[in-house]
Computed example of a mutant assay.
Amino acid sequence: MMEEESLDYVLVPMGMLVMAIYHSWLLFTILKYPRRTVIGINAESRHQWVHAMMTDSLKNGVLAVQTIRNSIMASTLLATTAITLSSLISVFVSSTSNSGNTTSKLVYGNKSSIVSSIKYFSILLCFLVAFLCNVQSIRYYAHVSFLATVPTSVRKKDSIEYVARNLNRGSFFWSLGLRAFYVSFPLFLWIFGPIPMFVCCLMMSFVLYFLDTTSSFTRRLHTHSFRVEMKTDDVESAVSS
């Protein structure tokens, strides 16, 4: 029926538009009001952590390396999972095309093999993006593991800022890789039809909103801890001078 075929051309773009609008709003909030998002608050927390580790690297060097090693292991796990799923999808698509099978008749709103190819290609693209982002995350984490153990002083703000910036870049790439996994869920449900895909886009945007934003209590607690840290640093710098 024409109505079933038109569902892919109506619900799928609407679902992707909802996801695009949400992530555009999230990017704008991160750039303009970072403390309203978990990503922004975590970036400031990592900056404080680097400052605390590098001001006494002889004492905190082992702790810094172990912490970064855990992040490398998490990125490695996601990268391995992404490339494994990409390989499985490629093998499945190639075997299906060679056997000449078409999509199942149980899939509602899918009557074209071209649409089926677009579905699998979209999922494959998400996993490839997740793999590349996690590889870049491993690259930055490995670089920070060397820099974080270099002895420095409180006065050398440039070196500490450089290490914190690289650590945040690695974390941002890890967040992008994880976000690609999130986006793959509605694309995977698209195999079963455009209706589950559209519903998943709505639910995913709703859930991600609560995962990405912070409450007023969290912002107030983080701001208080940040001010306490800054006052402690001022006292230490005054004593050392």
Rank of each mutant, 00 (worst) to 15 (best):
Y120L: 11
F121A: 15
F121E: 07
S122T: 04
S122N: 05
I123D: 03
I123E: 13
L124T: 01
L124E: 14
L125V: 07
C126N: 08
F127W: 05
F127E: 04
L128E: 11
L128N: 09
L128A: 12
V129K: 06
V129P: 06
F131P: 00
L132S: 03
C133F: 02
N134V: 01
V135W: 02
Q136E: 11
I138A: 07
I138V: 01
I138S: 08
R139L: 11
Y140L: 06
Y140Q: 09
A142E: 11
A142D: 08
H143G: 00
V144S: 06
S145K: 13
S145A: 14
S145D: 05
F146T: 10
L147S: 05
T149D: 02
V150L: 13
V150T: 14
P151S: 07
P151D: 12
P151I: 12
T152H: 09
S153L: 13
V154S: 14
V154G: 07
R155I: 02
K156V: 00
K156A: 07
K156I: 02
S159W: 06
I160R: 15
I160G: 07
E161W: 01
E161N: 09
Y162D: 06
R165M: 14
R165I: 02
R165F: 01
N166W: 04
N166Y: 05
L167R: 03
L167M: 05
L167E: 05
N168M: 00
N168C: 08
R169L: 03
G170F: 01
G170Q: 01
S171G: 08
S171W: 03
